[in-house]
């Protein structure tokens, strides 16, 4: 177990335990959450609660970076936000951090909730990724993270 300080793009930081142990994605399920336009979680389903190891009350009202794993490069989330803020759909593979420090991989799709032409929030649905894609992204994100750390 490693204790790591995570610094987020909004200027906040958090000390989190990180354990190098993967938790499998639940078979047949989709992990669903909804945020407001600022990325604060307003809704999540039971699969989200189960896989993240947080309780629902610990999730609702928190920013989505609650799940951010230190192995994820900042560039991936920058791309996500630039895409959805331009009212487009984003998809990608994400390594998420659980409350207990373990991790799980997802294939995530995020869409803006557009009502009367205005973005009122975002819906995110995660599904089970293939092992091939996880292996590819593990290598890719390592490289991206190394480049970010050099800068």
């Amino acid at each position: 177990m490693t204790d790591i300080q995570l610094n987020y793009h909004d200027g906040t930081s958090d000390n989190r335990n990180v354990i190098d142990e993967e938790v499998p994605f639940p078979e047949g399920k989709l992990i669903v959450s909804r945020t407001d336009a600022k990325g604060v979680i307003t809704h999540c389903n039971q699969a989200f609660v189960d896989i993240s190891a947080f309780s629902e009350s610990e999730i609702i009202g928190k920013p989505h970076h609650l799940l951010r794993h230190p192995d994820m490069p900042a560039a991936a989330f920058k791309d996500l936000w630039e895409t959805i803020e331009s009212k487009s759909k984003w998809n990608g593979y994400v390594k998420n951090l659980r409350k207990d420090g373990k991790y799980y991989w997802v294939y995530a799709v995020v869409v803006p909730n557009i009502r009367k032409g205005k973005v009122v929030g975002y819906a995110s649905v995660r599904r089970k990724p293939s092992r091939t894609k996880i292996d590819e992204c593990t290598e890719l994100y390592k490289t991206m993270l190394a480049q970010e750390n050099e800068q």
Partner: peptide
Amino acid sequence: EFMIDLMDTLIT
């Protein structure tokens, strides 16, 4: 509307 948004995430 939200269900339609969710369906949209599945068509990728």
